[in-house]
Design a protein around this nucleic acid. Structure first.
Length: 681
DNA sequence: CGAACAGTAAACAATA
DNA sequence: ATATTGTTTACTGTTC
């Protein structure tokens, strides 16, 4: 605890380049140390979100970094190849053939057109992904050939030397052989580094053996991890509900099993090398010094070590110093099955982010082409974009119509996409990536979107990617509670839900946990109910609805037009949500909700998708008194049964809820009819 | 510009 | 005694 909060302050304070914030904080500092600290901390946080100088990179940074890295590796390799290594160009044709494809995309990404910030903020899809994969495939292919040639050369030399060495003194021969073998080893290590590097950049599904083949092997995101982070849970995520992991284990295993064939490539690499991968028995890839190609190495630091704790996914083990950490790293995260699996998970995360980048980048291209470039470009996807979100707002976080009605092109039909590609975070335009600055808008409240449907579509994404979910704490807490059969959770269970559902909440625990508690206490919609074993939190749906009236300001006719005019698939979850919340019964019927999302969201029970979570204004509809699970009402019967007591302890006249008959349906219709104040009915 | 809202930080008390 | 839980206050930033 102490460590966490301490690290928080440490972390935010120095990164507070934001002079304004800290200055103002100090100026107001008369109110007390706490106030000054809060001000400084807040400013620092925001700054840190954009450019976390310490260790962790934001997803956008990561993406950018990896792009640069990919390009650099490519450049280096080409340089190497050009400079001297007698690798003739029997692959020239292939090379140029594929090079034809690349430059277009490269030009697309060229800094002249896109600043990294723009790139980060307007992430877009498949084209970039294709680019990356093209590059990586190309690089890998070239690497393979390069190394193969190198090896052949070495073997050749070795052979000739051996033959020639028959006449030479033995020790000379031994030395030469030794030198050759060392060279060979070096080369193999280098190759492994490169391979790993490529793997890290998302080229996970290309086996080296395949890589020499044509480029049609572009993975096409067929390897979307379903529940890979489950792999992390083994060691991380304290107190994970066992049943959840069990429930998903099967998926998990099968999911990884399908991709495991391709994943299995890295350790095996190419046949001739496989035996030499770990000459000294040390996990070469995990020792920091060998990792220099993938991270900036500042002496005394380690990319996996920050703020006093191990940054290995799901670990968070506290280590006093680097030495201890290295020790921990070598013992706990040695090269074994688990670490390998976790590494693959991380690769998946990266790949997902890259896919995201590709999508958004393509969108950006379309937008820029539409706004600035030659309008004559017959781009099939030049969608009528909202001109308001023009150039000036590229750097700004706006979730505009363009986000909500994404592109007809990039976007695969949701029905087909739902099971496999939960990647697209809602309105990820940029908001979710909090890439450059205090982008902490919560689209949920903007759209009054039911978190459940968005979560349904993207929960895989949030689970894997360290991206801040665009929902308020209140809506997340509510969602967590409503997902449970009995609509109640202890604080700790809420914590666990957060960490389970969102990669983002696997760190900075002190901060968000405090925020969770703060929200629970602050909002009247969260009701604490005493229990024998402690207290549980429930949601007073009525209060919740009260505090956020639907903001969908569109005229009913407009909305209706949207409903009728848009194909079901095009109707973004946000809008479905918003519509549902704007009291449009016709949308609130479960059938109108995205079945794909419903099915894809494991944790949500069916009725959650449309029902209690969402303010289903089931006014006319005779709602079944209670749906399948025990309690449909927010006023839950407490887990351990002594429900009678705690209801009484609620202040004053028992506010409606306890009365069992009216509770359930009442909160359903409250949205429409009873807002004023009949809560004491 | 100000109100409302959300997030963060922190102090503090009660409780396990 | 310590950690967790819960409440409250203060502040900042964003949106409307």
């Amino acid at each position: 605890m102490m460590v966490e909060s301490a690290s928080e302050t440490i972390r935010s304070a120095p990164s507070g380049q934001n002079g304004v914030g800290s200055l103002s904080g100090q100026a107001d500092g008369g109110s007390g140390a706490g106030a000054a600290g809060a001000a400084g901390g807040g400013a620092g946080r925001d700054a840190a979100a954009g450019a976390d100088s310490n260790g962790e990179m934001s997803p956008a940074d990561l993406l950018h970094f990896q792009q640069q890295q990919a390009l650099q590796v490519a450049r280096q390799f080409l340089l190497q190849q050009a400079s001297g290594l007698s690798s003739p160009g029997n692959n020239d044709s292939k090379q140029s053939a594929s090079a034809v494809q690349v430059p277009v995309s490269v030009a697309m990404m060229s800094p002249q057109m896109l600043t990294p910030q723009q790139m980060q903020q307007i992430l877009s899809p498949p084209q970039l992904q294709a680019l990356l994969q093209q590059q990586q495939a190309l690089m890998l292919q070239q690497l393979q050939e390069y190394y193969k040639k190198q090896q052949e050369q070495l073997h050749l030399q070795l052979l000739t030397q051996q033959q020639a060495g028959k006449q030479q003194p033995k020790e000379a021969l031994g030395n030469k052989q030794l030198a050759f073998q060392q060279q060979l080893l070096q080369m193999q290590q280098l190759q492994q580094q490169h391979l790993l590097n490529l793997q890290r950049q998302g080229l996970v599904s290309l086996q080296p053996s395949q890589a020499s083949g044509p480029l049609q092997t572009l993975p096409q995101a067929a390897v979307c991890p379903t529940d890979l982070p489950q792999l992390w849970k083994g060691e991380g995520a304290p107190g994970q509900p066992a049943e959840d992991s069990v429930k998903q284990e099967g998926l998990d295993l099968t999911g990884t099993a399908t991709t495991a064939t391709s994943f299995a490539a890295p350790p095996k690499v190419s046949p001739p090398l496989s035996h030499h991968t770990l000459p000294n028995g040390q996990p070469t890839v995990l020792t920091p010094r060998r990792d220099s190609s993938s991270h900036e190495e500042t002496p005394g630091s380690h990319p996996l070590y920050g703020h006093g704790e191990c940054k290995w996914p799901g670990c968070e083990t506290l280590c006093e110093d680097l030495g201890q950490f290295i020790k921990h790293l070598n013992t706990e995260h040695a090269l074994d099955d688990r670490s390998t699996a976790q590494c693959r998970v991380q690769m998946q995360v990266v790949q997902q982010l890259e896919i995201q980048l590709a999508k958004e980048s393509e969108r950006l291209q379309a937008m820029m082409a539409h706004l600035h470039m030659r309008p004559s470009e017959p781009k099939p996807f030049s969608q009528p974009l909202n001109p308001v979100s023009g150039s000036s707002s590229f750097s700004k976080v706006t979730v505009s119509a363009a986000d909500s009605f994404p592109d007809g092109l990039v976007h695969p039909p949701t029905s087909a996409a739902a099971p496999v590609t939960p990647l697209r975070p809602p309105g990820l335009g940029s908001a979710s990536l909090h890439s450059g600055g205090p982008a902490r808008r919560r689209s949920s409240d903007k759209f009054c979107s039911p978190i459940s449907s968005e979560l349904a579509q993207n929960h895989e994404f949030y689970k894997n990617a360290d991206v801040r979910p665009p929902f308020t704490y209140a809506s997340l807490i509510r969602q967590a509670i409503l997902e449970t059969p009995d609509r109640q959770l202890t604080l700790n269970e809420i914590y666990n839900w957060f960490t389970r559902m969102f990669a983002y909440f696997r760190r900075n625990t002190a901060t968000w946990k405090n925020a969770v508690r703060h929200n629970l206490s602050l909002h009247k919609c969260f009701v604490r109910v005493e229990n024998v074993k402690g207290a549980v939190w429930t949601v007073d749906e009525r209060e919740y609805q009260k505090r956020r009236p639907p903001k969908m300001t569109g005229s009913p006719t407009l909305v209706k037009n949207m409903i009728s005019g848009l194909s079901y698939g095009a109707l973004n979850a946000s809008y479905q949500a918003a519509l549902a919340e704007s009291s449009f019964p016709l949308l609130s019927s479960p059938g109108m909700l995205n079945p794909g999302s419903a099915s894809s969201l494991l944790p949500l029970s069916h009725e959650d998708v449309g029902a209690p979570g969402e303010p289903l204004p089931s006014n006319g509809i005779s709602t079944p008194p209670r749906l399948s699970p025990p309690q449909y009402s927010h006023q839950v019967q407490v887990k351990e049964e002594p429900a009678e007591a705690e209801e009484d302890r609620r202040p004053g006249p028992p506010l409606g809820p306890p009365n069992p008959s009216a509770a359930g349906p009442a909160e359903d219709r409250d949205l429409e009819e009873e807002l004023p104040g009949e809560e004491l009915s």
